[in-house]
Each structure stands twice: as C-alpha cells, then as structure tokens.
Design a protein around this nucleic acid. Structure first.
Lengths: 220, 220
DNA sequence: ACCTGAACACCGTTCAAGT
DNA sequence: ACCTGAACACCGTTCAAGT
C-alpha cells in the first residue's frame, strides 16, 4: 500500500540531500490547496511521500514551522506577482494592476492565503521566540514592493504627499480586506469579487489621489 | 479536584435546563480570549465546568458548531456596537465612529474576531450543508447596519450615489483590512493602529464623498 | 431529556536505535 | 547526517448505559 504510487523513480536516492524539505513543503501546500489547513496531517504527508512520519522533524521544528514555511513561500510568490505587475508600466495603471494581482492571488489560492495570515505572524507582539524570521522578512518584502511603488507615484505627484508607509498600509488594508471578503464567501454572486475589486481600486484612487488632479475639469 | 472551584452554588441544579449551553459558550469564549482558538479543548472546557466531556454534544453538534456559536455571538456584539455608534448622531461623523468602533472591537478581541472570520463562514460556497444559518444571519445583520447607515448618508447626498451594497462592501473591506493588519502584529509601534484607523477613515471619506462637496473652494 | 464512562480512531511529538 | 519504529500523551467523537 505504499509502493503503488506512480512517482518517477529516476534518481537513485528518492528524497535525500535536502530535497525532502522541498518535497514536504510541496506536499503540504498541495494538501492545503486541496482540502484546507485543517486537513493537513504530518503523518499523511509523510506517508504520501513514502517516508516515516517523523522524518519531517529533521527539516522542521514542528508543524507550526512547516506552516510558517508554507506561508513564507506564499509571501514570496505574492511579492513576485506584485513586482511583475508594477514593473509593467511603473505608473498609476500599473499600481492598480498590483491591486488586481493581489486580490487575484488570494482568490485563486484561498487556503494558502489564509495560512499566510493565520496567526503565524501574530506572535510578533509576543516574546518574539516563536516568530519565524523568514516569514516576517518575506511578508515585509511583499509590503515593501507596495511602499516602493507608492513612493514612485508620490515623486511624480500623482498621489498625495503623505507618509508613505501609512499610505501603503492603507492600500494594503483595502486589498487585504477585499481579498478576505472574497475568500470568506460573504460575496456569493459570481463575478462580484472582481466587480468589488475594480470598484475598490476606483474609490481608492479618488481616496489617495493628489488633491489637484493633473487634468482638472477643462471641457465642462 | 473538581469540587474546589468558588462557583456560586445557590441554584439547586448547577447546569441543567439550558444554562449548560450558555455556560459552555461563555467558557469557550473565555478560553479563546485568554489563549486563542488552538488552545480550546472540549475536554478541558467540560472539566472546567465540572461536567462530563461529552455533555457538550447535547447542545452542539460538534466542535465546529461550538465555534460557529462563538462567532455568531461575536457578530451580534459587533452589530450592537456599530448600531450604537451610528445612532449617536446618524450623520457622517457617526458613520466614521462606526469605523472606529469596528476596528476597536477587533483589536480589543483579536482571538474572538479571528474565530468570526475563521473558515466557519467560508463553507457558504460549498454544499451549504455545513453552514451555520445563525452565523450567516448574524454576520449579514452586522453588515446590514453598515448598509443602512450608508443609505441614509446617500439620501442626504453627502456620499456618492452608487450601488449601496457595493459601497458598503468596500467600506467593510477597509475596516476589516485595517483590523486584520492591527491584529496580525504587522503593525508593531504602539498607537499605530489607531493612527492607521483615523487615516483610513479620512482617505475613505475622500474616496466615497460626493463628487461635488458641499463647500467648494470659494476663498482661493 | 440529560448526562456519564469506557472505548475508538486519530493526532503531534519524543527518543533510543538503526544505517 | 538522516531516517525508522515504538511509545507517550493528547485529542474529538461514538455509544451503550445510567438517572
């Protein structure tokens, strides 16, 4: 009952010298994607990989650490998506594309997204012993992408000249809030999340735009 | 080891005819508040109440149902806070007070707030069999308080004349996002959450305000 | 009706032992 | 170094039995 999986067995040693970690991470993410976090079991991911259920402890301190690693990878992917959207223009349209990319990632990977914000980060205020530094770094990296983009827009004066970090936090809060609403099934109608996203970005624009827009109402 | 708690023993039968449900709910909430959801154990809350650990199943289908009930109570309290803030003025200032009240509730009860949005609602898109109707109703009730307030502001034309539900969802997303950021410890400096809240409400105002404000720039 | 106590299947984690 | 197998303490849940 453990030899019958169609895994490619080309390499001599299946999961040694470090790929076990990667394999564990990948398997955990697959399970989370398919059935959610609460379905994640260390025993089963071991079994699924054809490995003892305690082998995991060579690569992760405990289940929390595994989840933190999953979350870290999520923030890395998210940052890449955000940066890609921004680099494609580096203007206000690109900034708004970042928002769409953000919500899009969350809605496409709801369970993963939930893990990213699920209490693993919350330990920050605590004794700082249970905090995963990689996770914090990666989360701050994704946030930094937003700050950088916003700073650029401020430099070209298409956005209010206010504290960049506070503004970025506000923008983050908006897209995060929209994403959560979209994930939690509060919005049931199909397409409603996309509609809310574009509406939110529109209202966000009028919210943070420079007080005097570049093109005031000339032709009335 | 089970008789030594200083519970008032005035009533003849300790937890019969229906107060067991309330006691379980209260005990669960207390534990969640103190140590978070992951520390919640059916066995221990039974023990803490001096009751068998299976007595709970007379009042709740399973642990999920208990958590759903805790979440429901959270939404009820939240709605009361929101309505109270709104009724105290019923104007734009009162509307902004609702925002402060919302974030205030979340930050004051982070673990409880997390349960309210923790996957219990997410089953809505599924086969609709695991959905707790009371929870959905109460959550929608809290949301409705926001819709009603917004509709009033629209009637007196101090807010954009757009689809009320979409606008309300946007506002909800903003406060929810700020609350989550505040809870997740992403914002570490003291007072930063309050600062972000007031900033967000300010930018929210310029975002959803009627296009032509009541007092246009007369004195240049 | 409501509660109990024993039992079941499952979980994360530890640890001495293997290679 | 890396992995195993048995064991430990714990969990949610079921169910026949008590009152």
């Amino acid at each position: 009952m453990s030899r019958s999986r169609p895994q490619t067995r080309v390499s001599v040693r299946p999961y040694h010298h470090g790929n076990l970690r990667r394999a564990l991470l990948h398997e955990a993410l697959t399970t989370i994607r398919k059935d959610g976090v609460e379905a994640l079991t260390l025993r089963e991911i071991g079994a699924r990989l054809g490995v003892s259920r305690t082998a995991l402890y060579r690569h992760f301190a405990d289940k929390r650490a595994l989840l933190a690693a999953v979350a870290t990878e999520g923030f890395r992917t998210l940052r890449q998506r955000l940066v890609a959207a921004w680099e494609d223009g580096r203007d206000r349209a690109a900034f708004e594309a970042m928002g769409v990319a953000y919500v899009g990632f969350a809605v496409a990977n709801p369970a993963h997204y939930r893990v990213m914000f699920g209490s693993a980060l919350a330990a920050k205020a605590d004794d700082a012993k249970t905090v995963d530094c990689d996770l914090v770094d990666e989360a701050e990296g994704a946030f930094q992408a937003l700050v950088d983009a916003l700073a650029t827009l401020q430099r070209e004066a298409s956005v209010r000249q206010e504290d960049t970090v506070t503004m970025a936090r506000y923008v983050w809060a908006v897209v995060h809030g929209v994403a959560m609403l979209g994930i939690d099934g509060q919005i049931s109608e199909p397409g409603a999340v996309e509609q809310l996203t574009s509406y939110a970005i529109e209202r966000l624009r009028t919210g943070i735009a420079a007080v005097e827009p570049a093109a005031p109402r000339r032709r009335h």
